[in-house]
Every structure is written in structure tokens, then in C-alpha cells.
């Protein structure tokens, strides 16, 4: 599904990722861990297509298409969803209209008619329940005045609405209490299927108790230095990252 080969990424001439390789197949859940500043978020931005991050070498292909040739919205319409570590506030743009616009543009890209209003509303209701947010939030402007936890829930809500095939969650668990964490995990687990893949970027093993990964990778200095199964996360929790540096 997602194949990353020898990837190099720079921001303003500063190299962040150098020679990263990763393959994610449909149905898999991958966790990417690692200390601060090792390039975890950069990897997420590069996949989603943030223009501030330049791919200076290697390739990212998604379902056979070279992502470099696609704009961020085309990537999204191809089914890639990025849950932002710091969701952006957009004053003046209501949540409801934002999501409906996104759904309809993605449908248009795929050659579908706009979503009928009743269907859209029903879907909204269903997913609001799933993540436990109420209409007060969805009637507001996108992320404006949301608390940290509400912003993260809102990312999961949007993910549920947009039904991506690949979801990348960039530290969606940071700053969440245990109840919110469960909401996030529920949302992710609902998306989990043999056709979809999920990449979870996290600092802590905590989230992985709820979203059990098939693979765990450790990112250090812009490359994957160790890969393993879910037990690797536990090992990291125990020993910290120091032992990897050798």
C-alpha cells in the first residue's frame, strides 16, 4: 500500500530524514516511536504533502502512485488522512461546512455525486457519538477555542467522517487523559480493517495498549534504526531510547 524508499527530507536546507525505508501493507497497523526531534512528524508531513518539507531523495509511493506528483488535496482524496499533532484553528469556517466540503470534494475526485444531506447528517450523528463530541462543538468554527483534548477528538471525528484508507496519527495521544485516549483508540479500531492501514506516531507505549500494532519502528536521527513486533514497544518503555543510540 505505502512504500517509502530511501527517503530524504529537508526543511529550509536542513536535513531531517535521511535514507528512510518503510513498507505498510493493507490491514496493518504500524507504530513509529522515537525521541523528540528525530523526524517523526516530518515523515507525516512528507506523506501528507506539506510544501515546507522538501523531498530531496528517494520516493513515497501509495497504491502504486508516486506521491511527489500529487498535491495535498489529491493525496487526501486518494485516501490519506493525517491527524495533526497541533490541529489548526480556522476562524470563520464552521465545522459542519468544512467537513461536508471535504467529503464532497473527495467524492468529486473519485467521480461520485455529492453526499445527500440526510446521509451526511446521519453520518455526523453517528460519528459524534463515536468520539463523544456534541453539536456545540460541530457548530463552532474549525478548532477555534477548542481545548487540547477537543482538538484531538475532532481529528478522530474528521477521520471517521472521511473514511481514509491510510490514517497517520501524529501524536494524537499526547496530552490526553485516559478517557479521551480510549475515545481515540475506539475511533482508530473502528477504522481498522483488512483494506485499511494505520500509522500511529507516538512517544509512549500507553496508546499501544489500546491500539495494538503489528509492527513497531524506532526512528532515530532521521532513519529507522530498529523494527520489531509489539513487544518492542514494551522493551522501549522499560529501557528508554538510550540503549538504541549505541
Amino acid at each position: 500500500m505505502l512504500i517509502i524508499k530511501d527517503l530524504n527530507v529537508s526543511i529550509q536546507d536542513k536535513k531531517i530524514i535521511s535514507g528512510l525505508n518503510l513498507e505498510v501493507k493493507a490491514g496493518e497497523v504500524h507504530a513509529i516511536m522515537g525521541p523528540n526531534g528525530t523526524g517523526k512528524s516530518t515523515l507525516a508531513w512528507a506523506i501528507a504533502g506539506n510544501e515546507a518539507y522538501t523531498i530531496t531523495g528517494g520516493s513515497i509511493t501509495y497504491r502504486g502512485r508516486d506521491l511527489k506528483e500529487l498535491s495535498p488535496e489529491e493525496r487526501a482524496s486518494e485516501g490519506i488522512f493525517l491527524g495533526f499533532q497541533y490541529p489548526v484553528e480556522i476562524p470563520g469556517v464552521s465545522m459542519t461546512n468544512f467537513i461536508r466540503t471535504a467529503i464532497n470534494e473527495q467524492r468529486k475526485y473519485r467521480g461520485l455525486q455529492p453526499i445527500p444531506a440526510p446521509e451526511f447528517l446521519a453520518k455526523m450523528e453517528e460519528n459524534k457519538k463515536l468520539v463523544g463530541i456534541d453539536s456545540k462543538l460541530t457548530n463552532r468554527s474549525v478548532n477555534e477555542g477548542f481545548s487540547g483534548g477537543e482538538k484531538k477528538k475532532n481529528e478522530i471525528f474528521q477521520m471517521a467522517m472521511l473514511e481514509p484508507t491510510l490514517a497517520i496519527l501524529d501524536e494524537t495521544d499526547s496530552g490526553l487523559d485516559i478517557d479521551a485516549l480510549k475515545v481515540v483508540a475506539n475511533g482508530v479500531n473502528k477504522l481498522r480493517s483488512k483494506d485499511n492501514a494505520i500509522i500511529v506516531i507516538t512517544h509512549y507505549q500507553r496508546l499501544l495498549e489500546y491500539i495494538v500494532p503489528d509492527f513497531v519502528h524506532v526512528l532515530y536521527k532521521g532513519r529507522i534504526v530498529k523494527s520489531g513486533g509489539k513487544e518492542l514497544a514494551l522493551e522501549l518503555e522499560e529501557k528508554g531510547y538510550e540503549w538504541l543510540k549505541n
Partner: peptide
């Protein structure tokens, strides 16, 4: 970028 990452042109 946030809006575009949701698939809006």
C-alpha cells in the same frame, strides 16, 4: 494546508 489535507482543492 490543513484544509487541503482534508481533500479540498
Amino acid at each position: 494546508f490543513y484544509i487541503r489535507s482534508r481533500g479540498i482543492s
